[in-house]
Design a protein around this nucleic acid. Sequence first.
DNA 1: CACTGATGTGCACTGCGTGCAAGTCTCTGC
DNA 2: GCAGAGACTTGCACGCAGTGCACATCAGTG
Lengths: 196, 196
Amino acid sequence: MVQKPTPIREQTRAVVRSLLAQTALELFAAKGYDDTTVEEVAAAAGVSRRTLFNYFRSKEDLALGGISEQGELIAARFAERPADEDPWASLRAAFRVLEEIETTAERRLEVVTILFGNESLRPGHAEKQARWQDLLAPLIEPRLPDSGRRAFEARAIAAAAITCLQAALEEWVRRGGRVDLFELYDTAVQAIRRLA
Amino acid sequence: MVQKPTPIREQTRAVVRSLLAQTALELFAAKGYDDTTVEEVAAAAGVSRRTLFNYFRSKEDLALGGISEQGELIAARFAERPADEDPWASLRAAFRVLEEIETTAERRLEVVTILFGNESLRPGHAEKQARWQDLLAPLIEPRLPDSGRRAFEARAIAAAAITCLQAALEEWVRRGGRVDLFELYDTAVQAIRRLA
DNA sequence: CACTGATGTGCACTGCGTGCAAGTCTCTGC
DNA sequence: GCAGAGACTTGCACGCAGTGCACATCAGTG
């Protein structure tokens, strides 16, 4: 019988992973992303550098990994939406899961600021964007009218929506979190969809 | 008097830079981006590794640098468009400069395939996307109705248009260049702007 | 022809990421 | 309860990207 593949192992593994991500964020916040070495993060968390790389593929992954599973959350929420809802409405609703993640407002601002304020992390965002796109596009596709290019259109819509969210997040950080994120998102979506 | 800052110097510099980019592309095409070291490119071009880094900031820059000035071309073309034209129409027209760049069709496909087919270069595309956004947004802004958020809206539009172009390019590569790029672009734009 | 400044180049160094070969710990079957 | 299979940790040694520095070299100037 193979019930739980092993509780303890996986449990500690999750804990360590979480600890590492936590420690990393603190150091990044204190010293900046570029001026923090992986070595330091590992030391601060009490593991070896090599071990850290057993948990995270890269330094970027270390920074963004904590929020990497958000893509799945969004996709899951999207899938729950009624099948005849407008894709854009579903996307907006799906993105809202980001607000439901348990954390304080200041902490969220802090994290997002680190993640978006740093030049070196843009690659990571691109990576994330691509993954989200891959997750969402297949869900959007069946909602579009048959056109022979639905798959491509679905990708475009997913990409555009994510881009709007990205733009909204950047602006949100720029304004120190003093505006409602989804108000910005709506502004962005309206701006691109409004015919001149 | 400081007329021409020096013809010869800058001339050779441009030649060497071009040669390096060329050599790099050939090697990337032959061995793949990840399996080609900067060392090899430098050697093949007959310069030292260190010198290569005097011409290009990074390996990525080496791959994408050849097309990095495209952003300025696009922005310049956009600026030439009539001020009362719909931003989306201007953007489309501006993007068309990409077709005017002198090169054979196969060569273009080859280059774009290398550049878009490789995972490791996504960061570079993100970089490019960001730069184009910074160039285009300020030009779009004055064309929008006053709303108190024009700057943000302009960024969103620029980002979305670039995203559509990106999506179109990816699809274009996926189909082996056998479709018209701007037909794909139009499909993408229509897909995101069409109200349900 | 000597001078200045820009460029080419070697060298050493930091940091990321990986393969390998121990050693250590956890669960399993006996 | 114990021995062995298998996973996790860790150190070590690489390779590669990118940078700072010092020295050599070469184009252009008076």
